[in-house]
Amino acid sequence: MADKPRIKLPKEAAKGDVIQIKTLVSHVMESGQRKDAQGKAIPRKIINKFACEFNGKPLFACALEPAISANPYIQFNAKVDEAGTFKFSWTDDDGTVITAEEKIALKA
């Protein structure tokens, strides 16, 4: 784990543009359904919440269940009216939070 999340978005956008943001974070997303070699259930360990804020305002969030594939990939859109910072957070079942930030500028 602890790999840096991968985030893809344009460096700059014109005011009012809707941009696409792609995120990918490394995580096993253990569903809790699988059994190990001894037949014991492997405990669930997933990222249960993803959130994205833009300049402190909530933009997009997603509650995730065990039915999300390993290394969750989430793609969504954002409307850019001002330059600013996107803040991303992934919350694990055990309470750890993976965070990342990306800046965007307005096209002159």
Partner: peptide, 15 residues
């Protein structure tokens, strides 16, 4: 998925 007006478009992809 929770969208806001800031999302611009109600579109998303997951796996």
């Amino acid at each position: 998925l929770m969208f806001t007006p800031l999302s611009g478009k109600a579109e998303a992809s997951i796996r």
